[in-house]
């Protein structure tokens, strides 16, 4: 999880820099959006499981986080749409 989160962070940092330099990063942004939001769901599931029954209680923040991340793969263009953009830009 730590490794994947670091990869995600590195990717986003690079895209911020390129965006500030005015580069066209539509394709890479679509990749980052879908991959990292999927990752956030995967990590939330794993972390919740570590808490056992406590993770399912609203007293622990992890339950709230788990519900929150579910929308990431849907809004701002679903992850399916992100993949359509990536494929189109690859010439498909």
């Amino acid at each position: 999880m730590r490794t994947e989160a670091t990869i995600g962070r590195t990717f986003v940092d690079r895209l911020i820099e390129e965006h500030m330099q005015g580069a066209n990063i539509v394709n890479e942004v679509s990749m980052a959006k879908s991959w990292i939001t999927d990752l956030s769901q995967k990590v939330a599931v794993e972390c919740m499981q570590l808490y056992g029954g406590y993770g399912y209680m609203e007293e622990y923040e992890i339950a709230r986080r788990y519900r929150d991340v579910a929308v990431n793969s849907i809004y701002a263009g679903t992850n399916e749409i992100m993949k359509v953009i990536i494929a189109k830009n690859l010439g498909l």
Partner: peptide
């Protein structure tokens, strides 16, 4: 939920209720 998109995330449909309940199945 993903197939239903934004609608699936709302409380208008029961999907989000099942999404929350299902997590318990892997614990209890």
């Amino acid at each position: 939920l993903q197939i239903h998109g934004g609608m699936g995330y709302t409380k208008e449909l029961p999907i989000e209720r099942w999404y929350r309940e299902a997590r318990l199945w892997r614990i209890y």
